[in-house]
Design a protein around this nucleic acid. Structure first.
Lengths: 357, 357
DNA sequence: CTGAAAGCGCTTACAG
DNA sequence: CTGAAAGCGCTTACAG
């Protein structure tokens, strides 16, 4: 049983024994050089004679010296940390991107600082203030609702990488995915399967990706000579609930359809549940295609045919881009092209249904 | 077109204009007091005369002063940041906990620093070193594979909160969920529905939660006088793939069953797909119950009956606990009891199947 | 190539 | 109640 009479442990500045207990000065003393020299060797800032270098290397190893990033941040103006503004830390969509960011930042000695924008521009602005206050060296904004102008302004102060928009400005790099082409691909797939009555569940049209996906659907339909039937386009906002409601309304409208293309997988899940409730089978009665290729889409029943959105690469590239910006280079990275993941939720329209048209 | 001849912007230490450009010294000058006084007012460290306080408050507001956490960290020994060790930043299970942590840390002025342990004890150890090097004020470990001993040792240096285990030590607080009771509840539900042949998909039995859930299943089966039939227990490792394989093997074994209880929702998804492939309907032919209540479980088809694991509260409580530890108090927080989410994937066994027994 | 020195922006004993 | 001063652990012009 723990001794409850012992007073609560409090932080003692001079008695720490773990990570960081050893200071650069101690290393300098042990190696018989100045602190400045140790610093230079550690940072590769200057050429140093071989004997001093090895003396320092040994001292570092022997003492187990780990530089204190906090002191480093204060003195050098760099904190080796990168702010990451996401909408929700637990987003099934951005999760992969966060991992990609972490994966490429860590080996470079940088730490990501994740903050959630909560789908609100003002909250995002606050997040950025917090990050700036913490003196991050750069910021990655995953989509976000901040205005382009605000982003450009921040980019004058520190490197910014933003995803999901097209934008060019000094100190800023934008990484965009071809949502239009992805949506075109998905729609075309359904068309090539023989579908003619393809319903579309739109995403939030205030977002560029929502817009682009609608544009891709429309282009494919028109290219097939089917025109654009507004009765087949249902509004949505990227949530499962909105996908479900869209399909309920669609069915109630009695507008004939044999396939549904949802602007994202989450809405496709909602759509699938609505179909299930109405006793419509996927893909036997209705084909369903999503967009994003969430981790969970592979294990839907049936597995969801969808457009692969390379979020993990997105994260990796975004991180590489800030690192390049930090190094004074101009990134030229680009995302892979959209690719359709053929699974089991879409196939030719059933003969019976086709005949009914 | 941006001017490409302009040299790359580099950080200029003395010309920053945004967050943090104003220093405490400037506030002190503007208010006509010493820096020490400003510091004390800001930190509530000492009683200060009313006129100085208001002068400082005004100066802070007028100059838009934001304290620099980096300097604060170096001088005061506190960084106002809390390290959070998770297994994967994009985990569908821990995501909610991360959000809960962020939600309660932010209002308190603390920032979470998320690092991914990658399901490896050595990687976790490295994560903790990184966090210590960054001088976090405390650490939250979500489950993790580190030994109890390692955790207890770290707790001597800084406050630690760990979830998913039972442990008591100075400077450490453990927050555990009643996995046993949750599993008992789920199994009992299936029993009360009339099922007698209930298969169980185990999680990774090296993890306490895997163990406890198995124990709960077993206890419920034995309490119902059905004993423990090993042929109905399939191994798994908490992944969708393992759930799928478990059911394939189960079906191939020709061991009769009318219901499946999976140790977590992800395995339930895999199980559901396996059933789908074998043309078995849920819940018409087979009832399915999961554990965790992931966000996506509500939108399965059919929506998954499962044990609610309060991950969001878990995150909130873990964060509150570190904060209390930091304040020198002993936390007494506890997680809510397990609760079954009745949805549509489980119901009475079909008469035909029941008759076949 | 390498030191001594100043400084990053705060906090906190130490004295009044 | 409040200042002056030292110090947190580094980095970086400034001089050799």
């Amino acid at each position: 049983m723990p001794d409850k009479t012992k007073p609560a442990r409090k932080s003692r500045r001079h008695t720490e024994t773990a990570a960081g207990s050893v200071t650069l000065q101690q290393v300098a003393d042990a190696a018989g050089v100045s602190a400045a020299t140790v610093s230079r060797i550690l940072n590769g800032t200057a050429t140093v004679s071989e004997d001093k270098r090895s003396a320092v290397d040994q001292a570092v190893a022997r003492l187990g010296f780990v530089p204190n990033p906090v002191a480093r941040g204060l003195a050098g103006g760099r904190t080796l940390s990168i702010g990451v503004v996401t909408q929700a830390i637990d987003s099934p969509f951005y999760g992969g991107a966060l991992r990609g960011i972490e994966d490429t930042l860590s080996p470079a000695g940088y730490s990501p600082l994740f903050v959630s924008g909560q789908w609100s521009a003002s909250h995002e602005a606050h997040c950025i203030e917090t990050l700036r206050a913490r003196r991050v060296d750069g910021i990655i904004v995953l989509t976000g609702r901040l205005s382009d102008a605000a982003l450009v302004a921040h980019a004058q102060e520190l490197p910014i990488v933003v995803t999901g928009r097209q934008l060019r400005a000094p100190g800023l790099y934008a990484l965009d995915f071809d949502n239009y082409e992805g949506a075109r691909l998905a729609t075309h797939h359904l068309l090539s399967l023989g579908h003619r009555y393809i319903a579309f569940i739109a995403g939030d049209l205030r977002h560029p990706d929502g817009q682009e996906r609608l544009r891709g659907y429309r282009a494919a339909m028109e290219a097939a000579g089917l025109g654009f039937n507004e009765a087949l386009v249902m509004p949505g906002n990227f949530t499962e609930a909105s996908g479900l409601m869209a399909v309920e309304r669609l069915i109630d409208s009695r507008e004939p359809f044999t396939a549904i293309f949802a602007s994202n997988d989450q809405m496709a899940f909602g759509a699938r549940l609505a179909l299930h409730r109405r006793r419509l089978r996927v893909p036997d009665d209705v084909s369903l295609v999503g967009f994003d290729d969430l981790a969970s889409s592979v294990y839907c029943s049936p597995p969801l045919t969808t457009v692969h959105h390379p979020v993990h690469e997105l994260g990796q590239l975004a991180a590489s881009a800030v690192l390049q910006l930090l190094a004074g280079q101009q990134p030229t990275l680009a995302l892979p092209v959209p690719r359709l993941m053929l699974r089991e939720s879409a196939r030719e329209p059933a003969a019976t249904l086709a005949a009914a048209r």
